[in-house]
Nucleic acid binder design. Structure first.
Lengths: 236, 236
DNA sequence: CCCAAAGTACAACCATCGTTGCACTGTTTA
DNA sequence: TAAACAGTGCAACGATGGTTGTACTTTGGG
């Protein structure tokens, strides 16, 4: 944590010296390597090499070794992506200004597309998530809990709130459970996509992605749109 | 493969000797250990010990070592569970005798429950699936392909056919894509459950499972039921 | 100039692990 | 009884990999 503020410098140059911030470089590299190889297969040497640092420097900054590095990276990555996801949510489903009914599908689709785009950008993060799930049985409970709280659960709460707001605006009928509706929206868009691409590892053609998202949003609206008129894509 | 028919015995006792079939025991044990630990973390010694065999015996039956053992176990497990899933599908959604409209939700829910039960029984298999996804980048493409063909894709085809049959019977409107409808059914029931339990590794209270399945089936029917009367659970 | 801090290269230690060879023990079959 | 064979215990090899100590270089500031 708090790598920004450290003893020694009142800000002049701190330790972000000439050739860049080593600890940050190590974290980035560790994220890449852990994402690609998983905890067990990932090698300290590979991480250090990817960071352009020596093994010794790595241990100087992360005395806890591989384990501390993994915990740090997981929390860091989860936080980063959570913020990005919540930002997208706020951008496409601003609770202050709910869309008109006719625009709901368009906005949800834009949101789903943006999430898919984020997934493609944050390939490393989502690959890491896959490894976290796979190794769930070997992670200390507190680490798993901390990750879930910092990442998925926080995002889920955000989506639940957005669904509740849409219901408030008369656009959705969540059938009494906004959180469930949010989970179903995720299942019909992100989750399916994640599984098909093995958490961002295997590519999926653009056209297929598009169809997947469109049909997911359409199905969601058929299941959760408020009583009124059916969405456009329900024809036929 | 073909462990049943081997040279040497015309069937009397073959090699399934007094203390049980070693190769089968090794496969079972390997499935357990690979499921629990993943490919990299799993140890040959641990597998041999769990099978009640010596390391040497293991290598006598699987000269390809760890890799061959993994490939064998993946195919074996995928085949077993695929058959079980298709059997459940045939039992609860017999294409020959589609249910009456009023019973559709009941039958789908029974199917989803049965699948969840199978997931709980085949904990090892689904944990293995998690590891396969996580290690997708390190598996030879042919292995990954073979697994997907022997498992998920075969099941998906079965579900798509079932959805088409239900549409034929006038019970569903798949909106032109039975395969997509099948994927959405899976996403709203199994997939969501799988993620919540980290592929069967982490437990989920019975009541929560039940609510998850019921709401998933209900949402699916709201999205895909044929024009007629809304399902019972759609009452606000 | 000297010091302190950060970084590096190198080597070594220790543990784990996949794999193999070997000698030995049973049990079945000819 | 001897041959054949499944199985075992044991030791060893080679490789990998996490970790640490040490001595050396670089950089910036008093």
């Amino acid at each position: 944590m708090d790598r920004a503020a450290r003893p020694g410098g009142s800000g002049r140059r701190a330790r972000t010296g000439g050739r860049g911030d080593k600890p940050a470089a190590i974290e980035r590299a560790a994220c890449e390597v852990f994402a690609r190889d998983g905890y067990t297969r990932a090698g300290i040497d590979a991480i250090a090499a990817a960071a352009g640092a020596s093994t010794r420097t790595l241990y100087n900054h992360f005395p806890g070794g591989k384990e501390e590095l993994f915990r740090t990276v997981v929390q860091w990555s989860a936080g980063r992506v959570r913020e990005a996801q919540l930002a997208l949510l706020a951008r496409y489903l601003d609770p202050e200004r709910p869309p008109r009914a006719a625009d709901l599908e368009r906005d949800l689709l834009a949101l789903a597309r943006a999430c898919a785009g984020l997934m493609a950008e944050s390939r490393d993060h989502f690959a890491l998530v896959g490894h976290i799930h796979a190794e769930a049985g070997h992670l200390p409970d507190e680490v798993f809990e901390a990750w879930q709280e910092a990442g998925p659960r926080a995002v889920a709460r955000g989506y639940a709130a957005a669904m509740a707001a849409l219901e408030e605006a008369g656009l959705l009928d969540t059938h009494g459970d906004p959180a469930r509706a949010a989970a179903h929206f995720a299942a019909l868009t992100s989750t399916d996509l994640a599984q098909r691409t093995s958490w961002g590892v295997r590519p999926l053609p653009q056209a297929e992605t598009e169809r997947l998202l469109a049909s997911g949003v359409a199905a969601f609206l058929r299941a959760y749109a408020a009583g009124g008129p059916r969405p456009e894509s329900a024809r036929g």
